[in-house]
């Protein structure tokens, strides 16, 4: 039985590097109702908040100025201008809504293909497994980013239309002129996005482990919440510094003058490290996995 070396093994026209392009995957996800709903809600939420402010009337209570006072201050100044409105919208979304949305885009992407049964047909094309994960991850992250951008842009737009283009008020520090204010707002958005990489990584990992999209999304959100709860328990001491959610609110440091980089930088390190670990595990597992669904 002799062996002969050959160069091309696939059918004519097949190139592994051209299977499942980014555009193809983008369109696969774009047509999904959940994608459209999630993005639509990003547009809707600022409008809902705006309406709530309009109906709720003026209720600027004089909250304490220490510690959690920052919360009430961000709420108090939410209607001070478009920038503040956008900041407030981000602020109320960061803790849960964006977590769910990011978990949705990242946790659903592989698991839903598995649950539909279409994953095995993609692998039989064959789309190389590493490529499949890479494309899916890039597109999921792109949709997550798009959701955040849509949220902030909508909030900024409707906030500016309603409340005007005014300096950004942030509490302790001086008001920031609109120009630098936009930069700060973008920085906050960027930090939140980076921090959400933990959720993205975890959801993506779970997505490669399970065939149940809800399990992956819910699992990621659940673990995120557990981590948040543990972070509230100060008795855990230094262990809390290693929780992925520990630096979740470090973005508030971006609103002070001078900017408090410490928490932001540490948060970015933690998020990247966690995400890198989760993604590595996802690749490691998926490349060796028996696809049985």
């Amino acid at each position: 039985m002799s062996e002969v070396a050959v160069t091309e093994t696939g059918v004519a026209g097949y190139r592994p590097g051209r299977t499942l392009g980014l555009r193809a995957e983008w369109m696969r996800q774009w047509r999904r109702r959940r994608t459209q709903l999630a993005l639509g809600f990003m547009v809707l939420l600022p409008l809902v908040i705006l309406v709530a402010f309009q109906l709720g009337g003026d209720d600027s209570s004089d909250g304490g100025r220490n510690g959690r006072g920052q919360f009430s201050q961000l709420v108090d100044v939410a209607t001070a201008g478009g920038l503040n409105f956008a900041l407030f919208t981000l602020f109320v979304s960061a803790g849960f809504l964006l977590v769910v949305v990011v978990a949705l885009f990242n946790g659903d992407t592989v698991a839903s293909e598995a649950s539909w049964g279409s994953l095995r047909y993609l692998l039989a094309v064959p789309v190389p497994r590493a490529r499949l994960l890479g494309v899916k991850l890039v597109v999921a992250l792109a949709y997550s980013a798009l959701a955040m951008v849509v949220l902030v842009a909508t909030a900024l737009a409707v906030g500016t239309l309603r409340y005007g283009w005014h300096p950004l008020q942030s509490g302790l520090s001086a008001d920031l002129a609109p120009g630098p204010g936009v930069v700060r707002l973008l920085a906050v958005t960027g930090y939140l996005a980076m921090n959400l990489l933990v959720v993205a990584g975890l959801a993506f990992l779970l997505s490669t482990l399970t065939d149940a999209p809800l399990g992956a999304v819910g699992g990621a959100v659940l673990l995120y919440i557990v981590s948040s709860i543990l972070d509230q328990i100060t008795a855990l001491g230094n262990i809390r510094n290693f929780l992925p959610t520990h630096y979740g609110q470090a973005y508030l440091g971006l609103l002070t003058t001078p900017i408090q980089w410490d928490g932001v930088v540490k948060g970015a390190i933690a998020a990247l490290a966690y995400a890198a670990v989760f993604w590595s595990l996802a690749w490691f597992r998926f490349l060796r996995k028996d696809v049985t669904s």
Partner: peptide, 18 residues
């Protein structure tokens, strides 16, 4: 994932569609 799989068309374990 071997490229030669591209020469096969398959229906395995039922249909899988979006």
């Amino acid at each position: 994932g071997a490229p030669v799989l591209s020469r096969i068309g398959a229906l395995v374990e039922g249909p899988g569609f979006l």
